[in-house]
């Protein structure tokens, strides 16, 4: 099936930090697109600006110039509550210590839809339950969040994003701190959400090998901007080698792995 429904469009975007006198530009004139049902992996070395890009797209931080369109409407023209119905987040930061149960935390995802005091309607509860089913958390819903392992907690945070019922889910390094089995499960889960539930998923990751195998589109971030394309395309024209700016590592097309010289 050909995907044509453009969900996010980034035009001439410049990201970075603005200080009083100066601005620190991390990336310039970015032009990117995201389509419905795509799983996009943003890869690049540490400090290149992956998190900054995600933070800019999610309005946590402001862009220096350019424009971000969410379903053809400028990001800044959305009211907070409207935007919350379009984009949900899974961040790397740990949530503060609290007494929430897994169910209560997931239910917080319904906040953009609930009334002024936050009462859950039957429809809200249905959405929560289907999110719980999708992420396979049925057995954990009465546990306390501070009793969970890292892998379980990450799954809960994804479930919360899912209950927020948005077209777009953006995850910042969702597989950091996870062991290999949890990493595989996490990628499988995200793939399932994108391809079966038609969610548009954008993640940043250092798991290049998984990203190559699972992503529909890669955003390869380098000092010169972002290279956008399918993993096959980036491999074929050797662009994937730009991920590393040294000569010790290269991508071996035969084994489809990075190798050390």
């Amino acid at each position: 099936m050909k995907l044509t429904n453009e969900i996010i469009k980034i035009k001439d975007l410049s990201i970075g930090y603005r200080t009083k006198k100066d601005k620190l530009i991390l990336a310039n004139s970015l032009n990117l697109s995201l389509f419905q049902g795509e799983l996009v992996c943003l890869i690049g070395k540490n400090g290149i600006g992956k998190s900054t890009l995600l933070r800019t797209i999610t309005k946590i931080q402001n862009e220096l110039s350019g424009e971000i369109l969410i379903q053809n409407k400028n990001l800044h023209h959305y009211k907070p509550e409207e935007l919350a119905k379009k984009i949900s987040l899974v961040l790397t930061e740990r949530i503060p210590q609290n007494n929430l149960t897994v169910y209560e935390l997931i239910a917080l995802g319904r906040q953009p839809y609930t009334n002024w005091i936050g009462t859950l309607s039957n429809f809200d509860k249905e959405k929560i339950n289907s999110a719980i089913k999708q992420t396979g958390l049925q057995d954990l819903i009465h546990n306390r969040c501070d009793e969970l392992s890292d892998g379980q907690m990450q799954r809960v945070m994804i479930c919360r994003a899912l209950s927020q019922d948005t077209d777009i889910i953006i995850l910042d390094e969702p597989t950091a701190h996870l062991d290999i089995q949890n990493k595989i499960e996490m990628f499988k889960l995200l793939e399932n959400l994108a391809h079966n539930l038609k969610k548009t998923i954008l993640i940043s990751t250092h798991e290049i090998q998984f990203a190559l195998e699972i992503a529909d589109i890669l955003w390869l971030m380098t000092e010169n901007g972002i290279l956008q394309g399918t993993p096959e395309k980036l491999i074929k024209n050797n662009q994937i080698n730009q991920l590393f700016d040294n000569n010790y590592v290269y991508f071996d097309k035969n084994s489809m792995h990075f190798k050390v010289k």
């Binding site: 999610t58 907070p80 005091i117």
Partner: peptide
Amino acid sequence: VIPNIKSLNSLLLGENYAKSMGMN
């Protein structure tokens, strides 16, 4: 206090999450 209950609950996940859930 009462109209703040909802945002107080969002704040349990930290400011960034609270914002992403539509809190002003």
